[in-house]
Nucleic acid binder design. Structure first.
Lengths: 201, 201, 201, 201
DNA sequence: ACTTAATCGAGACGGTACGTCCCGTCTTTCA
DNA sequence: TGAAAGACGGGACGTACCGTCTCGATTAAGT
């Protein structure tokens, strides 16, 4: 019998202020030094208003990232996955854009924080996957399906595996910082992966 | 300025007790709830003894993981990368072993914790790469070099990229928990990646 | 400036529920842990309904005690001070009754709470004196005046002082709990005080 | 198995700073608005240092008052109860001094706070009695015993009752603020009480 | 009886303080 | 002099209430 607050009476002004403050602060001080108290202070909000609606600072950041992703989508980010008919070109385009975001502190800080927190906390990780990661992976998968249906890649291709072959190396380099993230890198990934799974013409 | 303690007088008994306690505790409560105080208490050690020799709990865990990896190596883990001449078989063998470790709580908990912490904290990440990750990647790279020299894969193959193509998808699935880690999965990775970069026979 | 609510529209049901809840709760958890929120919850009332009509929890408790005292008076407590002509007997009778109340948790808890709160908060103390204490002291004083007029005690007796001589020791022992409150104690007070201020027969 | 801190390692500097801060603050803001946090801040001390050694703010104030009483005793307050042979004079002298303290905010604020808190909290009240009140009452009782032995008051006098007859009215007027505390008032108490219990010469 | 305005129950809100946990430093005592 | 022990100043935690504020839904007046 958990006391569930009445969502219809929620203050949208406070909600937005909290999400904005969380994004600002995670960029300024990093995830580990991010505190609920600081978010509340920056947002001009009582701590309880945060605890009332989110179970942890990670959850706040997840919602904040969702809002950020939503805004980015609205502001003119790509609406759906590009499909020019040229699979390699489309993948390169999208991965280059992804790399650019990963190199932009505004997106990088919260994304790293969430990914790291999710890796450690399974419950959060599940949320993260469901709400942020999975929808994106589905877009890749869909584009690959189109390509497969068009006979551009092998009929027996495991699409989900293909997505992981494309994104895995990128995520690896991003999270572990083994080397700089460049367009050349993502292009090479696309070439190598398609070289493997693409039809021999 | 007696800042640097005399390492020769260091108590090895305390050092081992601390590393053991850290590993135990990270498995029990997770990285975020792991505290220096709890490690000290579990190890039967004064807090100062930890602060004297390590700068942070992440550093303790890194050392603990190094010790763990060292033990594993000693205990009969593979000494060097297997080289039967069959590249695909060797890679599958090693990746299967890696997946088995990732599915073993004993290794999984500290590894996840360190990876996540390193993703968030660049200084720690650098240490983590240098001491734990890089040596392993180098083994893969070396094996691939042998294969390349033997003409089994294309001459112009970027070996480091190849390593990332192999390990990236695995790490992706491991950290993000998008799907279970199985031998079938790693076998498929090897097949697909080699299908792309391997010489046409 | 519609600050003063319309008393004619006040819900008497709510008012009584609040006073009852306050009395119950002060007995259960004590004054310091008594909260407006708990009173509101117990009374099935919105917090605002309390804040609308009372300035503080002390004021609520004061009203509650007044209601309690009123009820006690109605239920057959003494209406006016007894006057049998025998001053000592009348005083002993009343003081014994007072001691009995002080030993009854139902009256003791709120009375202690109010007395203590009034000792600390002058404004509340003034209210407490005016509405609860003074009327009672006046009854004693009146009975003593009758006795003085009848020549039973010295003509120059300071009646108010006499009242304090009678009630002071009782209050002292009650509040400070230096010893148990018994009929023997109050009888002894009356004897000693009258022994001093009574006419030599 | 309550964790009892090691008293021998206690910081006396912190202890004194805390007691001083508590006395200052109770005078400035009153008992109800006195907070542990404010005491810690004023004393330049971590909150835990207060919670480590005292169970409540009332307990802090009790120790502070003890220290205050100790200082007053040292500074030249009366060492023991005066005994000039004239009981009435001695009592009047001491009661006048007591009234003067009660009219001095420095002593009044913490004393009221403690008395009120003790009236509400039996455990604290017991401590208050044992450590502050009882020793003082014993001094009165001792002086009265001397007087009784000297035949100045009736042989069958209940000394403890006599003390309460003297101090009760004073405490009553002090705590309940029914009238100003003056020397005339205490003199009258002494006269009336002795008029009752003193030997007819 | 019908409107209309205030009170009502409910509870979200910006805050303050709580009492606890842990941080990293410092001090004491011992081997 | 390194180590076990743990007190210290400090900061954040998550909780409990404060007193204010908005919400419909009664509810009791005055039309």
């Amino acid at each position: 019998m958990a006391k569930t607050p009445d969502a219809s009476r929620r203050s949208d002004r406070s909600r937005r202020a909290i999400l904005d403050a969380a994004l600002e602060l995670v960029g300024e001080v990093g995830y580990n030094k991010l505190t609920i108290e600081a978010i509340a202070a920056r947002a001009g909000v009582g701590k309880q208003t945060i605890y009332r609606w989110w179970p942890s600072k990670a959850a706040v950041l997840l919602d904040a990232s969702l809002a950020l992703a939503g805004d980015a989508g609205t502001e003119g980010g790509w609406e759906g996955f590009p499909d020019t008919g040229d699979l390699a070109a489309d993948l390169k385009y999208v991965l280059r854009a992804t790399v650019d975001e990963m190199n932009d502190g505004k997106y990088d800080a919260p994304a790293r924080a969430l990914t790291a927190a999710g890796a450690t906390d399974p419950a959060l990780g599940a949320q993260f996957n469901e709400k942020l990661l999975e929808p994106q992976l589905a877009l890749y998968e869909e584009r690959l399906r189109t390509a497969r249906d068009a006979g551009q890649i092998a009929e027996d291709t495991d699409l989900r595996l293909a997505v992981e072959l494309l994104l895995g190396p990128l995520t690896h380099r991003w999270l572990l910082r083994t080397a700089p993230l460049t367009h050349a890198f993502t292009d090479a990934i696309v070439d190598r992966v398609l070289g493997g799974i693409a039809r021999v013409s």
